[in-house]
Design a protein around this nucleic acid. Structure first.
Lengths: 204, 204
DNA sequence: CGGGACTGAGTGGCTATTCATTCATAAGAC
DNA sequence: GTCTTATGAATGAATAGCCACTCAGTCCCG
């Protein structure tokens, strides 16, 4: 990959353009929906010609994939890093939840793509499921199991189901935030979710 | 609306064909996704000509709307009925949750349309939000508030948020069920969700 | 017959993708 | 230093295919 011409220290132009197209796509998809978005719209939003898009992406669909892949990768990496910084399972879950909503709340357009556009077809869902999504759920699950072994959480609960419940609750917060006309901070909602959740799953 | 020709007691032919198209659409949308479904596919699945679809629906989009409107109406009516049959707020929520998953679990194709296809665009989401969806959330919310006044649930919790949490958790159960290859009963998951949820929100 | 239900081939509009061409820059020759 | 040639990134007009929707005509019932 770096065999040919890796000498030139900077290739800012290349990266910039690919990046510009991705950002433009997020904005356009968020506003019009994936299926109603024209490649021409993305190109003009990015300030490039239609054809240029195809120098960086194989197809319109690949753009959506790239958005998902990159964001998910970043999110999981950030999540793991947060988790390492504490050993208390409750605190770990708190950080995961907070981070989850903080990331989505920081970029409304990206949040729309994640919460709405990526759900728009079983085909996508299944592909994405297989990819990072399942990994994210299992990050929550294993953290919970850790807490079960430590005696912090109720041992009789099914960790897989518990993970889905927490994820589902957070997911709904995000979706509602997107659809709401009122503007409020998304991340703090994590505390309200966790209050109920932790209260529900903690060993007495 | 019923001013013209409400005399004919039965219009089975009309109803039958409209019904057949709706059912066919649910199946086709569930398998291919809304945007990848051709009106011609729906017509042939329903056993009618392309043009016939337009005798019953103004557009492809209206078909999707009709599916949503009818199902949501039924679901809410069924929910209210269940609620009337008990006065215990905890039991009311239990019935709502169970019913929620039971209905989706009974018709996989319909569930796919609801969980996946209807989420595929902010435009739809907003319209649907405005319609029955918000009503459903507020059904949960007011039941919860009732419980708060009765001293059963923690009074300091924000009922709106609580409703979203319960809904989100159930919603995630349904989505996961759809995507899962393994076949299991969806409705019983309601108990696991409620176990944690009620434990989390109940006054001590 | 009259009229409504139904048909399905055809039309129009739309848009993802391609590709011949342009042009700024790099590389080499002197 | 400057002219010539090579390179490939970028362009955007053209293509090709798709599909929602229409409508002229057929069918059938009373």
């Amino acid at each position: 990959m770096r065999s040919a011409r890796s000498i030139n220290s900077d290739r800012p132009v290349v990266t910039d353009k690919r990046e510009a197209i991705l950002r433009a796509a997020i904005r356009v998809f968020a506003h019009n929906g994936y299926f109603n978005s024209k490649v021409a719209d993305i190109a003009s939003e990015a300030g490039v010609a239609d054809g240029t898009v195809y120098l960086y992406f194989k197809s319109k669909e690949e753009i959506l994939h790239s958005i998902f892949d990159r964001s998910m990768e970043e999110a999981i990496a950030a999540g793991r890093k947060q988790i390492e910084q504490t050993s208390d399972p409750r605190e770990k879950l708190r950080r995961i939840a907070w981070l989850h909503l903080e990331r989505l709340g920081a970029d409304r357009d990206l949040a729309v793509v994640f919460q709405v556009e990526l759900r728009g077809s079983t085909k996508f869902m299944e592909e994405f499921s297989a990819a990072g999504f399942a990994e994210y759920l299992s990050l929550i699950r294993s953290t919970f199991e850790e807490g079960q072994h430590a005696g912090v959480f109720r041992p009789e609960l099914n960790a897989k189901v518990v993970a889905k419940i927490l994820f589902g609750a957070l997911d709904e917060m995000a979706t509602n935030w997107i659809l709401s006309k009122r503007r409020y901070k998304l991340a703090p909602m994590a505390d309200q979710v966790l209050d109920i959740f932790l209260n529900g799953v903690s060993a007495r």
